[in-house]
Amino acid sequence: MYSGINISQTDARPMYLQIMEQIRARIAAGDWAAGKELPSIRALAVALNVSVITIKRAYLDLESEGVIVTRHGKGSFVADVNGLAGELKDAELDKHLAEAADIGRQLGLTEDELAARLRRALKNLEKK
């Protein structure tokens, strides 16, 4: 059931972050629709062979980000916020752009050169 989520221990990122990312990705893609009930913390822990404390942490952080909502005694649900999927995708784009800007500066590119590179990337996408 939840075997789609995979935690790697050789990944540099801590396990709870990996879980959060994979849940966010599914919500952003729309696979996990708004209002969908998340697996219970214990059920997910057993399914992934990961400690309960790690799942708890991931859920708590996702809740503080507003991505999920926990109703006491009922479980956790994907936040029913309009455009949540879009919001998450937006946040992802900003993150990638920030990284690109950082690398651009390290390479010594000017603003225009960086913009040109972005346009080239877009064109490559259209070709495919």
Binding site: I7, Q9, M15, N49, V50, S51, V52, I53
Partner: peptide
């Protein structure tokens, strides 16, 4: 320690 790290709470 790999298994311990993965499944332990404490």
């Amino acid at each position: 320690t790999v298994d311990v790290e993965r499944i332990s709470d404490r």
